[in-house]
Each structure stands twice: as structure tokens, then as C-alpha cells.
Design a protein around this nucleic acid. Structure first.
Lengths: 210, 210
DNA sequence: AACACTATTAGACCATAGTCTAGATTGATA
DNA sequence: TATCAATCTAGACTATGGTCTAATAGTGTT
């Protein structure tokens, strides 16, 4: 009796995936989440999830942050990344940051099920094309990722906008908070990342391709 | 009667390269330069140089800036990059930014001469290992490179330190000028790159891997 | 030599970034 | 319910960043 959590902001895709899985796994329980917050709280309520199917591009998730955060909070949970893109460097990053699999959305459902079988057995599965260059993540990048995982979701959002080159005033407008609050978050980000200027914080984000 | 310009800050290497070339090219005239400034003035004085052998890591050159600058000022001059490293992405960037060849310093002298022959005929030459993935540089990156080439050497140095995450005060100390002057340079850099904050300038530098 | 042009320099001034302190809210726990 | 911890919020204050103006020095041109 397996239990999966599907985290994807696209309801139609969740439905399609659900259908594909139902044909291949009998006795399957599915939970759903549509953003990072609901994913984390779903994991918090259900402590017996066997596999997380995590979309990279979710609201509040910002590419790698969702994965980094989940891996930090639930290191034992197998995670398969579901993604529209299949860029080699992204695939490598995901595996490097602890995902057991990387499943492109374009895959036929039979192959998706096959990939999930592999992952449930504890093995790594990535598309054939990406199997060659799975660069190892450096120790330094691992440490940086660990620091990034300590950021709160709101702080992560602020870092994301920092990385876009926005001014504090613009970030405040985007998030609907005052500039003073943005500054407070930025100070907290500096502390957690171990830097002392916005430029350096941006360089950390750039390095992890957040 | 060929005329080459060797631009490398290592006198011993210039000498070794000179020796290797003398065996393969009769009637060879050699000019030497040890930093970016002397390279540019040498090119300015000698308008009949047939080939520039350019080291990537030279004082005042900061990896790709030297190449970008030379290509902007002398678009018709064949340039072969000489480098200690042979990282694939760097090779691709160099070729993308208009170098005709990329010659690792570790190459035996016979192969260096062979590579130079190829380049003099107007063909591209890179190490065997790097021949597969010569990613094309995007139009946007080309435009950015064109903008970076408009920076003066001093402005480029400032951008380099910006990219290291230094404060204006620290940059001023490094360059032996006042903070006010650093700020003036930074404003000029913003204008030329078409950005309006140091964060965005840093992101441009990061994107071009300067 | 006189000229225009550009890089470099810097001071005065204003805008933005960043720190410190602290109240309000939420969630888990006893 | 009471309480602790963490997050989010923001105001007051200081440091740093960025613009404008302008002087100086070098470069090439006529």
C-alpha cells in the first residue's frame, strides 16, 4: 500500500499523473499539493509518505529552493523531480542536491511508472540523454545549499528578487510589504548565508542557480 | 614573412613559445607584450601583425575581457588563445567571442605549430577533447560583450572587484584611488552596460564569466 | 601650437542599503 | 489556557551607494 505526494501547481497535470499511476500501482494512496507551503504541511501531517513527486516550478518554490528545503527537513524521503525542462545542468543539480530521480513531463506514462519503480527501490533514475554527465556538487556548494535551506520561504522570495536585481522598494511592492521589512529580511538573509552585502548574497544565489 | 604578437605575462613561457615557433616558421618576426595595455599599444604601433597569441590570465585582462577588447578594437586580427586551463566552457566562450583557436599550454610544440598553421589559414582549432560541445553564444550575450568592450581598463578593474562582492571602500583601497572616484567609475559602468544598480552590473559580469 | 576628445580623478549632495530595537502573529507544547 | 520559539512586521538611525558637476591630464588631429 504505497502513498505518494504529488506537488505540482497544474491541476490537469496532477490528474493526468494520477491516472497514469493508478494503472501501474494497485493500492495507491495519493496526496496532492499545489505550492511549497502546502507540500511542507502535507509532509508534516502524513509521516508515512513513500515518495514525493515534486515539480520544480511551483509558486514559492523558485526552482531549486523547494528541493533543497524538502531535503533538509525530510532527508529520508525519496524525492523524484517532475519537470517540463530537461536541461542537463538542471538535472545534474537536482541529483546533486539529493533527488533520487528526474522525470520529464514529456515521458510516456509507462516509462514514468518504470522510473518510479526504480526510485522506490532506492536507485537513481534520470532520462537516458542525461545519464552521462551527472557532475558532482562541490562541498562548498553543498554547504551553501545547507545555508539556503535555513531561509524561511519569505526570505527566500526576497533573495529571489535580489537575484533579479530589484531595489528594496521594488521588492517591497512585489511582496506587498514595506521597505523596512524587506531590509529586515535582507539582514536575516546575510546572517544565514554568512555574507555582508547584497552583492555577495546575489552571488551565492547565482552560484546555486536558484 | 609572418609577424606574431605573443601576449603572456610569463617571460619564460614567451621564450619557450618563441623557440618552438622558430623551428617551424622560417622568416618569423615576433613581438611581445606582458599585459593588456602593452598588447593594445603593440597592436596600435604594428598594423601588420598576422596573429595574436593571447594568454587568458594577464594583468589587467581578467580572463575574457582581454579577448573581448581586442576583438572589438581589431576585428580582423586572428586571435589564438593560449591558456593553462582547458575547461570546456571557457573554450566555448573564447571561440564564441571570436577567437580562432584555443591552445593549451600543455600541448607539445609540434602540435602548437600545427594548430597555428590551421588558424593562419582562417580555420578554427581547439583541442580534440573540446571539439564536441562548442555552444553558440546567444545574441544577448554578444550584445553584453559588445557593451563590456566599451569599458575602459580601469572601469573593467572596478567591475571585476564589484563582481568579487567588494564594497566601494575596499575597491578604492585596492586601486589606490578615493571612494568618490570608484563611485564615478561605477556610474560610468552602469551607463555603458545599460543597468541601474551594482547588483545588475554584477549579474552581467557573472553571465559573461568575466 | 591650438584644438577637440576622452579617461581619470574627486567633492558635494541626495538616495538607497543595512542595523538595531521591538511589537504582533502564528504554531507547537505542556 | 499559558507559554515558548520562530517568523513577520516596521520605525528610527547610520553607512554605503550613486548622481551631478567639474577640474586635470593625456591623446590624436589639423
Amino acid at each position: 500500500m504505497a502513498k505518494f505526494l504529488i506537488a505540482d501547481d497544474h491541476p490537469l497535470f496532477r490528474e493526468a499523473l494520477q491516472g497514469a499511476l493508478a494503472n501501474h500501482f494497485s493500492e495507491l494512496t495519493l496526496r496532492e499539493a499545489e505550492d511549497l507551503d502546502s507540500t511542507l504541511s502535507a509532509l508534516n501531517n502524513d509521516d508515512d509518505v513513500d515518495l514525493l513527486l515534486l515539480d520544480l516550478h511551483m509558486p514559492g518554490s523558485g526552482d531549486l529552493y523547494g528541493l533543497i528545503r524538502v531535503r533538509e527537513d525530510y532527508p529520508l524521503l525519496p524525492v523524484a523531480i517532475i519537470s517540463g525542462s530537461e536541461d542537463s545542468s538542471i538535472v545534474a543539480k537536482c541529483i546533486g542536491f539529493g533527488a533520487l530521480g528526474f522525470i520529464p513531463k514529456s515521458l510516456p506514462s509507462a516509462e514514468i511508472a518504470e522510473a518510479i519503480d526504480t526510485i522506490l527501490q532506492g536507485d537513481t533514475w534520470v532520462p537516458k540523454e542525461n545519464r552521462e554527465r551527472l557532475d558532482v556538487i562541490s562541498d562548498e556548494d553543498q554547504q551553501l545549499a545547507q545555508k539556503v535551506s535555513e531561509l524561511t520561504p519569505q526570505q527566500y522570495r526576497v533573495l529571489h528578487f535580489l537575484h533579479e536585481g530589484l531595489l528594496n522598494k521594488q521588492i517591497a511592492y512585489q511582496l506587498g510589504i514595506t521597505e523596512a521589512t524587506v531590509k529586515a529580511h535582507i539582514t536575516a538573509i546575510f546572517r544565514k548565508l554568512g555574507v555582508y552585502s547584497r552583492t555577495q548574497a546575489v552571488l551565492v544565489a547565482e552560484r546555486l542557480q536558484l
